[in-house]
């Protein structure tokens, strides 16, 4: 369980990045934190593994106040994958990179190698095991960073902008992967701008703007709320805009992805015996 109570965070230069955040994320939840550039999303999740400590208020991870634990201790249960993979990659090969944390945690070489090969396979990285991470594309480096955290099997996984630099197919795989680890009981928190990705994955959406939480609810509710979405500098999913423009024709509001829209449209057309439909 991740509990955030009255969290205020001020950077040394005086900028108040978080201005009183209350948030509770239960074990096994799948949550997307969304909002404009500079809304405080990354600052918030850096509190989850103790990289930042509250100026005011507190953050509890499974009941432990992050001020009473080291980052190393918190990291065992909270895995944070940074937005920019180059901030966390440093090894000579992908395999070494992914094995690093496990070795640090003192696992035997046998377990290290087994786990590393498994996670590389899951993230479609096996062919690059002996390659330097710096020779890979941005999207691939991003997956290496993800692998190097997931490999130690943290209970809560935090992904900062996981879809950046990923093409359409990789995003689909990433979504399946996130769903899979979430089904296995892991808490997954993603920080993202990617409205269409969220519209298809449909997590709980926490919307932030200017250091505060301004919306919290099901993706279908939050992402189809024009005013809320606008306030957080997002743009509604295309399908939501489409559904809105045709609500007078009976298309339900709250549609946010193409697959549900397809069924809703076919149903409407059949009801009206539209001749174009065979």
């Amino acid at each position: 369980m991740i509990e955030v109570e009255g969290l205020v965070f001020r950077y040394p230069n005086g900028f108040e990045a978080l201005r009183g955040v209350d948030l509770r994320i239960g074990d096994g939840e799948f949550v997307a934190i969304m909002g404009e550039n500079g809304a405080g999303k990354t600052t918030l999740v850096k509190h989850f593994n103790g990289l930042l400590k509250p100026t005011l208020g507190r953050v509890l991870i499974d009941g432990v106040d992050t001020r009473d634990a080291s980052v190393a201790e918190l990291a065992r249960s909270v895995g944070l994958v940074f937005q920019n993979p180059d901030r966390q990659l440093f090894s000579e090969t992908v395999r070494e990179e992914v094995a690093f944390a496990l070795r640090n945690f003192g696992f035997s070489e046998e377990i290290v190698s087994k786990r590393v090969e498994r996670i590389l396979g899951m993230l479609d990285l096996s062919e690059y095991a002996d390659t330097s991470p710096f020779l890979l594309s941005g999207g691939e480096r991003k997956r290496v960073a993800l692998a190097s955290v997931l490999v130690w099997d943290p209970k809560h996984v935090i992904l900062d902008e996981p879809t950046i630099g990923q093409d359409h197919l990789q995003k689909e795989r990433l979504r399946d992967f996130i769903m899979q680890i979430n089904d296995q009981g892991k808490t997954v928190v993603i920080v993202t701008h990617d409205v269409e990705f969220v519209a298809e994955a449909k997590p709980r959406v926490v919307l932030m703007s200017k250091g505060e939480i301004v919306g919290d609810g099901r993706a279908e509710e939050v992402l189809s709320d024009r005013d809320l979405v606008d306030r957080a500098s997002l743009i509604r999913p295309q399908i939501s805009e489409l559904a809105d423009s045709l609500s007078d024709k009976g298309l339900p509001r709250g549609l946010i992805d193409a697959y549900s829209a397809r069924s809703a449209i076919l149903r409407l057309l059949r009801e009206r015996h539209v001749p174009e439909l065979p």
Partner: peptide, 28 residues
């Protein structure tokens, strides 16, 4: 080809597979 089409375009491609051939839009 793994290209991330605009979602309304994707929607109409799917509808075309359902037999509804009414053109492929690229905007809402």
């Amino acid at each position: 080809l793994g290209v991330g089409l605009p979602k309304v375009t994707l929607l109409f491609q799917m509808l075309r597979e359902d037999g509804l051939d009414v053109g492929i839009p690229i905007t809402v």
